[in-house]
Design a protein around this nucleic acid. Structure first.
Length: 516
RNA sequence: GCGGUAUUAGCACAUCGGUAGUGCAUCGGCUUCCCAAGCCGAGGAGGUGGGUUCGAUUCCCAUAUACCGCUCCA
């Protein structure tokens, strides 16, 4: 594991050194957990996004895209549950240095009362045997009644405090209930603090007329609030999906592991609307479709696994993650959730608008159920980089650093280089550049020895190097050098276009996804 | 947000209470070459802000950032 951590550090360093990812505002010492993509990173990222977008909107004729604004009406986040659920009251124990959610500590205390009550019942059940009447016992036994009273009182006080977001009261409850830290066993608590995971800002130019609005913590809600717009104007018939790529923002308490958890990140989400009762069938369909999308890239089938959720979020009735093997373990890259009709009905309730679909096949109106596929662009980027990075030992004791990027995603598809910087070779190389540059992202290099130039392209993952030598001027052939094998092949200039196209055309991958 | 560790050039590292040095990389030139060859030349650094001191990159404090652990994670 130590060497894997070492590898991860090297990948981070490599990302910076070769223009993939830079810390944000680095000249001002950076900004925590915010990163910028460099000249190579942005190409790779754009290629990932294009691969995803086309696999959704081209391969599925019932999926269309939208691009919703980052700012949304504040009520959106009440309806989605983010205002409540993204506001965790936290408290630290000063002795053990552990942090807990204050509400969880109090809920545990409630559970303890329930346990005590159950214990009393169990004892009595043993004593009285078959004649035991639990209802009667609970209503009459002194000790049980005492526990019930305490529990109900606590519950009411707790609910009231949570409802008012009264942090002092939450701390007072913890003190009054003599709740101790499970680790240190002490009651030496800090104040309860609120960590709102949503970023907020003001809309409106005058101070008093301004409205507090949030930067979206997920892109999904932009799709839900546009459900009727798209369904009606696009004449969409269920089942159908809406895809979106966009930025989202979360004020993470701890953001770490490079671009894996950032405060500003990009999501690619598709919400698929289905008839109630058919959601689990579609859930399974999308699980398999999405896994094929990942595997088609050829990063290694064994690096993927599903992680099904046992504990489901409040809106879901099935959920799974696609995890990828990073240097720091299997980590979630994509989530697939069966979100029921939670979001649409919640928006209907909060907006007062009817959000339903009339299904002509069964002659009924209903609120559609939703299957969500949600993948983090930055996490996808990281999994591609991690699996591509290799320090390769060569015959002769040399090593080279090479990025085995899938050619479809590679920032630069090919680099043209004259073997020497004279004898008309650079001019010939430029001709080849001009021939290819409208179709592919190309690079040109004539500095340093040919070997050094090959290594430079290896380091940014360019799949092909095209070398122009003296023979080229006579026979119209060039040497194509392949990144992964380092082998070379003599190719006619006229055939270069097709060679590069075949290797870098996403169409080949789409066929795998559809035909599997 | 807590605790620990760290921060010197693009990268890796060194030195020193009083000229900050090396390798790789970068740029220009020579060599003209199919896997980081060689030669000549150039540019580029002490995270930031204070304090101690005649003098601080070095000692002290604060702060920022990163890493590790905890906590959190729709």
């Amino acid at each position: 594991m130590a060497t894997q951590e070492e590898t991860f550090k090297k990948i981070v360093a490599h990302c910076k050194e070769y223009g993939f990812v830079f810390p944000s505002s680095e000249i001002y010492d950076g900004l925590g957990a915010v990163y910028d993509y460099g000249q190579n990173g942005v190409e790779l990222k754009n290629n990932i996004k294009r691969y995803w977008w086309d696999s959704m909107t081209l391969l599925n004729e019932n999926i269309v895209g939208i691009d919703a604004a980052i700012f949304m009406h504040p009520t959106t986040w009440k309806a989605s549950g983010h205002v409540d659920a993204f506001n965790d009251p936290l408290i630290d124990n000063k002795d053990s240095k552990k942090r807990y959610r204050a509400d969880v500590l109090i809920e545990d205390q409630l559970a303890k009362y329930d346990e005590k009550i159950e214990k009393e019942c169990a004892k009595a059940r043993k004593r009285f045997g078959d004649s035991f009447d639990e209802q009667m016992f609970k209503q009459t036994n002194g000790r049980v009644l005492e526990y019930v009273t305490k529990r109900d009182a606590l519950h009411e006080r707790f609910a009231q405090a949570m409802n008012d977001s009264n942090l002092e009261e939450l701390k007072q409850i913890i003190i009054d209930e003599e709740i101790v830290c499970p680790i240190s066993g002490t009651r030496n608590w800090t104040d309860v603090r609120q960590f709102n995971l949503m970023f907020s800002t003001e809309m409106g130019s005058t101070a008093d007329g301004a409205m507090k609005i949030y930067l979206r913590p997920e892109t999904a809600q932009g799709i839900f609030v546009n459900f009727l717009n798209v369904q009606k104007t696009g004449r969409m018939k269920i089942p159908f999906g809406i895809a979106q790529i966009g930025k989202a923002f979360r004020n993470e308490i701890v953001a770490r592991q490079f671009v894996f958890r950032m405060r500003e990140f990009e999501q690619m989400e598709m919400q698929f609307f289905v008839r109630p009762g058919e959601e689990l069938k579609w859930f399974d369909h999308w699980k398999q479709f999405r896994l094929r999308w990942h595997k088609a890239l050829g990063l290694g089938d064994e690096k993927y696994r599903f992680h099904d959720h046992d504990k489901l979020a409040h809106y879901a009735n099935a959920a799974t993650d696609i995890e990828f093997q990073m240097p720091f373990g299997f980590k979630e890259v994509e989530g697939i959730h069966s979100r029921t009709n939670f979001d649409l009905s919640s928006h209907a309730k909060h907006s007062g608008k009817k959000i339903e679909y009339f299904d002509p096949e069964i002659n009924q109106s209903y609120t559609p159920y939703v299957i969500e596929t949600s993948i983090g662009v930055d996490r996808m980027f990281l999994s591609v980089m991690c699996s591509a990075y290799e320090e390769q030992a060569l015959d002769g004791g040399d090593t080279r650093v090479v990025l085995h990027l899938p050619p479809v995603l590679a920032p630069v598809k090919a680099c043209v280089m004259p073997l020497v910087k004279k004898d008309g070779l650079p001019e010939k190389a430029r001709e080849i550049m001009d021939m290819l540059k409208f179709d592919f992202k190309m690079a040109y290099d004539e500095k340093d020895s040919i070997g050094k130039r090959y290594r430079r392209q290896d380091a940014v993952g360019t799949p092909f190097c095209i070398t122009v030598d003296h023979d080229t001027l006579n026979d119209g052939c060039v040497t194509v050098r392949f990144r992964d094998t380092m082998t070379q092949e003599r190719v006619k200039i006229a055939e270069l276009h097709e060679l590069i196209r075949k290797a870098t055309d996403p169409k080949e991958l789409y066929k795998q996804i559809v035909n599997a």
